[in-house]
């Protein structure tokens, strides 16, 4: 296949999509994910991320992560200047592998939750949150 610029771009995009990662993963996000997973493959499955479709205000966005068998859940905001948001490590007395918090989003972007499950595997979920500019700019 002729390696035109178009084909190269399509292959690159395809590689991203095949990896299951949000398209515009920054270097910092990739580093954070690699550090968390140790380079292991991330699939889908036992992880739920609940976030509003449209954030009332990007400064305070309520989110929830939950899983049946997660030992640890990492949350990333893929479009923030620094993508890391929080990491939840569940102890022996955690009744559920779930937590809620409120986060800051710099603009419309994907929020990603990656869970490390008891069996050592990794799964992820993502949610696009629209962040808008308010009324009179105020």
């Amino acid at each position: 296949m002729e390696l035109t610029r178009r084909n190269a771009l399509l292959m690159g995009a395809g590689a991203f999509l095949a990896a299951g990662l949000p398209f515009r993963a920054s270097a910092a996000a990739e580093d954070a994910i690699a550090a968390f997973t140790g380079g292991a493959e991330v699939g889908t499955g036992d992880i739920t991320l609940t976030a509003p479709e449209i954030a009332e205000n990007g400064n305070t966005v309520p989110i929830e992560v939950s899983s049946e068998a997660a030992v640890e859940i990492m949350v990333l905001a893929m479009g923030n200047p620094t993508p890391s948001v929080a990491t939840f490590k569940f102890g022996k007395l955690a009744a559920s592998r779930a937590a809620s918090t409120r986060i800051r989003l710099a603009g419309t972007q994907d929020v990603v939750a990656i869970a490390k499950l008891e069996d050592g595997s990794f799964v992820q979920a993502s949610s696009t949150v629209k962040v808008t500019i308010g009324g009179c700019g105020g």
């Binding site: 923030n80 490590k89 986060i103 800051r104 989003l105």
Partner: peptide, 10 residues
């Protein structure tokens, strides 16, 4: 629970 918080927490 043990939570690591980053600057993106409100």
């Amino acid at each position: 629970i043990d939570v690591t918080l980053e600057p993106a927490i409100s």
